[in-house]
């Protein structure tokens, strides 16, 4: 299960990154910040997913906070792209978050050295026995 903190208040000392910031060139100041807040101004605005990926890729090790119009049913999505804390604008059910984080223990995509990806399981001798099929038209 993935660990993700749910926070009630946004920390005052956190660095806020604008939603329009492409984070193409990330300064050492940003990288060394202990906490960064990325914003989802509306649920449909998914820019911060890619911003999180860029920050993690650049080596950001601090607390990455997703804030704004975020959903409990998407908790795992935030975690996979690199968020470590969630701050909700709207009411949310902790049970839904917990269930969501336990979903899909392996996924089709790999995001970092630790993430569990299906293709690695297919290639690993111990986990490859879960394979079936593989022959064309073999019913």
């Amino acid at each position: 299960m993935i660990n993700l903190k749910i926070i009630d208040l946004l920390p005052a000392d956190a660095l806020k990154s604008e939603n329009t910031n492409l984070l193409e060139n990330i300064s050492p100041k940003i990288l060394s910040a202990p906490k960064i807040i990325l914003n989802f101004p509306t649920f449909m605005d998914g820019r911060a997913f890619s911003q999180a990926r860029r920050l993690k890729r650049a080596g950001f090790k601090g607390d990455l906070i997703a804030s704004g119009d975020i959903g409990a049913d998407q908790a795992r999505q935030y975690a996979l792209v690199g968020f470590s804390s969630l701050h909700f604008d709207r009411p949310h059910d902790p049970k839904v978050i917990k269930n969501n984080l336990m979903q899909y223990p392996v996924s089709y995509q790999k995001f970092n050295a630790d993430s569990k990806v299906i293709y690695e399981n297919r290639l690993n001798k111990k986990t490859a026995q879960l394979l079936s099929g593989g022959g064309s038209f073999s019913g």
Binding site: G46, F49, R53, Q74, R76, S107, Q109
Partner: peptide, 13 residues
């Protein structure tokens, strides 16, 4: 298909 299925980053393009 596999790579794009439930891709968390590209769910709200």
């Amino acid at each position: 298909r596999q790579w794009s299925t439930l891709h968390p980053e590209f769910a709200n393009l």
